[in-house]
Design a protein around this nucleic acid. Structure first.
Lengths: 145, 145
DNA sequence: TATTGTTATACTCTATAACTATA
DNA sequence: TATAGTTATAGAGTATAACAATA
């Protein structure tokens, strides 16, 4: 039964796991978009706000993290700023840089957003500690490959 | 007791696993968008085309599967049809319905797209059969919770 | 009357290129 | 000259509402 993994032609088990991962990805995304929508945020706005709730970041850095062009960040921050969730601050060290930062209200929304994510939390509650440890290690290994 | 009734606060391990799942989701999405881009397809176009590569579907059904409004499907199918990857066919049973179907070329592109997905396949090659079985069971349980 | 697909409209996200103000 | 952020532009996805053809 212990057939060696064939890289060129994935075996049935690998294909099944790939499909399961696809299902998890779909569920996670739906859940995220739904949680964002409950706060009248788009997915991009929610992701950017979540980043800023940890620490203020230059526009350039936000573009790198969101994997989009810096010009797009301008608009997303504009809309969040218009709602009072984010503000632009000067960077004392470099006057070219603008630091985007979550306001108090923005941090509150980001926290509610995180707490509103049901999937990837509720399902995990059905697993034992040992199983969660096992899952953690497997996911870690996948991400470092 | 003055304690609030059973508010679940995820432990550190659960939070770590949630974050790891988020990382996997991000990696999977990047990989999918990249694979789509290599065929000059957007993510939505690639997802729709992949669905049609299995079987022709009514526009309405596509909207349900993509979780978007039917009016959006019109445009996505329009663009795929303009490139000869998809075609609209009448439904003999109901003249209101239009069946979207992948052309031969469309099926070929969908196949290449699927084969081009590196993540969720290469990382799995680094796991043993036993580990993949374990991962499969854990993911299954998460999805049925 | 209800349903299917489309059109029209408006908003957001996206990449590209040109611009400004700093460095 | 190079970099950070912005603006302008165009294409794509999205939801909403109104519409024609068909059931």
């Amino acid at each position: 039964m212990a057939t060696a993994p064939n890289i060129r032609r994935p075996d049935a088990l690998t294909l099944e796991v790939v499909e399961l991962i696809g299902d998890v990805v779909a569920r996670f995304y739906e859940d995220y978009e739904e949680a964002a929508g409950e706060h009248a945020l788009t997915g991009a706005q929610a992701r950017l706000l979540s980043m800023l709730s940890l620490e203020p970041l230059p526009m350039r850095k936000l573009a790198q993290k969101l994997k989009c062009e810096p010009s797009n960040v301008t608009g997303i921050v504009d809309r969040l700023e218009a709602r009072g969730l984010v503000e632009r601050r000067p960077d004392p060290a470099d006057r070219r840089v603008k630091l985007a930062a979550a306001t108090e209200e923005g941090s509150r929304v980001a926290r509610e957003l995180r707490d509103g994510l049901r999937f990837a939390r509720e399902p995990l509650a059905g697993l034992t500690d040992e199983e969660r440890l096992s899952l953690r290690d497997l996911l870690r290994r996948m991400l470092t490959t």
